[in-house]
Design a protein around this nucleic acid. Structure first.
Length: 273
DNA sequence: CGGTGGACCTGCTGGC
DNA sequence: TGCCAGCAGGTCCACC
């Protein structure tokens, strides 16, 4: 589910609702996620407060008053809510963290690909396990020059390359699909054959698309919800994602799809070379 | 090391 | 109507 824009909206929602709140209880209902939730129960969270919530790639980090952080990943179907105890537990809500204002932080994840773990934070304020992530796509470190140089090292399809978190973090199937269409580059092109002008187009398309998607509250295809329960409105601005068989918004030809790296990749055979 | 393909998990959709 | 194959915003691991 969440790529970077969805994670950013979740973080903004959580920052508002969690910052300053003290944890009064932790209840795990079903521990089996990508990693076990069991350690959370004995992690000594009760009595700690959230001092901030931040994002790195697709991860959210609830910063705790003892210097540790609650690391969250939302997998494909993760949804977090902060709401009162009057609302009954949903089927796939796996952990409740009770707060001192009477609300409950709830982690729901139908497909169980998400994770929630407690880790010490380094000087920069992130858990060490995120060190291998590539640069933030919206940071100044993510430039056309950087992408071009990285691309030289990869012979695989450019779409798979863009979705590699160690190259740039947070670009998933939806946004990689959109960006390559905007840049006019076929998803199958070997990354190492990208030209400098194409790298420039791709980098600016990534920045522009992610910023617009953040502003729209992310993209909800089916599952994704923001912390306040709202759906992401960027679906309405999607150019080609999920539209194979429809006509290309640029040339009117028919959009096709193929599998790359196990993921469906929609593209326009006429506009994307 | 880079690239590929399958595994993980649940629910929904579309075709027969 | 019912069943089954295939698919879904991601990541990890084993294998060439």
């Amino acid at each position: 589910m969440p790529e970077l824009p969805e994670a950013e909206n979740i973080v903004r929602g959580l920052r508002e609702k969690l910052t300053g709140r003290r944890i009064v209880d932790v209840v795990v209902y079903s521990p089996r996620l990508r990693t076990s939730l069991e350690p959370l129960v004995s992690a000594g969270l009760v009595g700690l407060s959230f001092t901030d919530v931040r994002r790195r790639g697709r991860y959210a980090i609830g910063v705790l008053s003892d210097g540790r952080g609650l690391l969250m990943h939302f997998g494909m179907s993760g949804v977090v809510r902060v709401e009162g105890s009057d609302i009954p537990k949903r089927k796939h809500e796996h952990v409740f963290i009770y707060l001192d204002d009477g609300n409950i932080f709830r982690f729901e994840d139908t497909r169980r690909f998400g994770m929630l773990e407690c880790h010490p934070l380094n000087r920069q304020g992130y858990p060490a396990c995120l060190d291998s992530l590539g640069p933030e796509p919206l940071s100044d470190a993510f430039t056309a020059q950087y992408l071009f140089q990285q691309a030289q090292k990869h012979r695989g399809p450019v779409k798979v390359f863009l979705m590699d978190n160690s190259v740039v973090t947070g670009v998933g199937n939806i946004y990689a699909t959109e960006v390559l269409f905007m840049a006019g580059v076929a998803p199958t092109r070997p990354a190492c054959e990208l030209t400098r002008p194409e790298s420039r187009k791709i980098v600016s398309a990534i920045k522009e698309t992610l910023l617009r998607a953040i502003d729209a509250g992310g993209t909800t295809i089916s599952d994704f919800l923001n912390v306040d329960g709202s759906r992401g409105q960027f679906v309405q601005q999607l150019l080609i994602y999920g539209k194979e068989g429809a006509s290309c918004p640029r040339c009117g030809g028919t959009l096709s799809a193929l599998k790359l790296g196990g993921r469906t990749s929609c593209y326009c055979p006429k506009c994307q070379k």
